[in-house]
Computed example of a mutant assay.
Amino acid sequence: MTDCCSTSTQTAELCACDEGIDLLDDAPSASAIQIHPFTRREVLKYMGGFVLTGFLAACGQTASAPGTRDGATVQAGKNGGKLQKLDLAFCSQVLCVLPFEVAKQQGYFEEAGYDVNLVYMKGGTQAITALLSKGVDFVGTPMDLVVRSVDEGKDVRMVASTSRLPFFALVTAPEQAEAITSVAGLAGKRVGVGNLGTTDDLLLRTLAVKNKIDPEEIESVALGPNLADTLLRGEVDAGMVQEPALTLVTEKGGRLLANFMDLKETTETLGGAYQFMGLNTRPDVIEEQPDTLRALARALVRANAWILEHSGADIVKAAPEELVAGGNTEVFAKALDRYKQSLYPGDGIIEEANVRRVVDAQRAAGLIDEGKEIDLSSLFTNEFIESQG
């Protein structure tokens, strides 16, 4: 296997050979997936520039077995007992990662008996690919990708909700604010999204249909998890952004066209809350590792409770600063205070009505064939939440 620490390729500077966060690269099969020991700072720095492609295996290390790292257990730091190691992959949008980072940083995973390695992916699509190829057994991704997978005949199931609203808002570039005054004005325009086929892209298509635009008339441009700078430079005409990017762009003159972080506006557009992020896995994992799923779900519920009980100023400390648009943690903290009660459920329950809206939105956007029914029970289960009493 190539030792990238000795190569002169553009990826060599990422091969620091130190302990750090793992990154799963794109792979069509489990055997092709490799774990890369890059530091989180290095990974997120390059994610911001959207050049995380074609990584070689780092420092001669081989891939870990699915769901584990370097053996089954490790001595716990707090209680002296043994922790089971596992990888949990998720998309790297800043609001998405908070429950997972809080669960790790507050010790909730460890108290449940697990040493969880958080795997930052380029997007939810890559995380789902890793799950389906059995590169990992647990991922945090939006319900949209669960629906897309099931619609294509691939079994994925959500077992706990970490957010019940999408973390996105549609805003114009400042220089386009006068020309684009509504969603209808996006026909023929370039709109930045984190990645193609993920929730922000799907919601953009849904908005197009509701505004009587053919989604194909809007050019979706994949820009990675932090597209604020590209939007401010006017390299795209509009973008699906999170906070604090939304505040930063509107302060510079961008026009807000739709805000899915606001429950009232989401209800007006979609009819109610829209199941977004959650803990997802495969049916074989549900059958073989129920205790692990119950423990992870419990830790994430505790993390969301912590988020709801704390100020934005405290919560923002759990966010990787490399993912905070503009590095403006003060703006981000204020946004968390404004939206957290709407975004993060305190009980982890997945509401059927919210899942149905995801399916309905995809059908309206032309992603699900007319007349095709999707069994909602094949998309999620609350058994690991409800069994905790």
Rank of each mutant, 00 (worst) to 15 (best):
C4S: 03
C4Y: 11
A12Q: 06
E19C: 08
D22S: 13
P28Y: 09
S31T: 06
A32P: 02
G49R: 12
G49H: 12
F50K: 00
T62H: 11
T62W: 14
T73C: 12
N79V: 14
Q84F: 03
C91T: 02
E101F: 07
A103K: 02
V119T: 11
V119N: 09
Y120P: 00
K122W: 00
G123N: 09
G124D: 06
T125S: 04
Q126A: 06
Q126P: 00
T129I: 07
A130P: 00
F138N: 07
V139I: 10
D144F: 11
V146S: 11
S149I: 02
E152G: 15
A160M: 05
A160E: 12
S161W: 07
S161A: 13
P174R: 03
A177Q: 08
E178V: 13
A179I: 07
A184I: 13
G185Q: 10
V191A: 08
V193W: 00
T198K: 02
T198S: 04
D201V: 03
D201C: 01
A208Q: 12
V209L: 08
N211W: 08
D214L: 01
P215W: 15
E216V: 15
I218M: 01
D229R: 04
L231V: 01
R233A: 14
E235H: 04
V241L: 06
Q242G: 10
L248T: 14
R255T: 07
L256H: 11
A258G: 11
A258S: 12
L263H: 07
K264D: 04
L270G: 00
G271D: 15
G271E: 12
A299W: 00
V301F: 05
H310R: 03
I315N: 05
V316R: 06
P320I: 02
V324S: 04
A333R: 05
D337C: 04
V359P: 03
D360T: 11
A365V: 02
D369P: 02
E370I: 06
G371V: 06
S378P: 02
F380H: 10
Q388C: 12
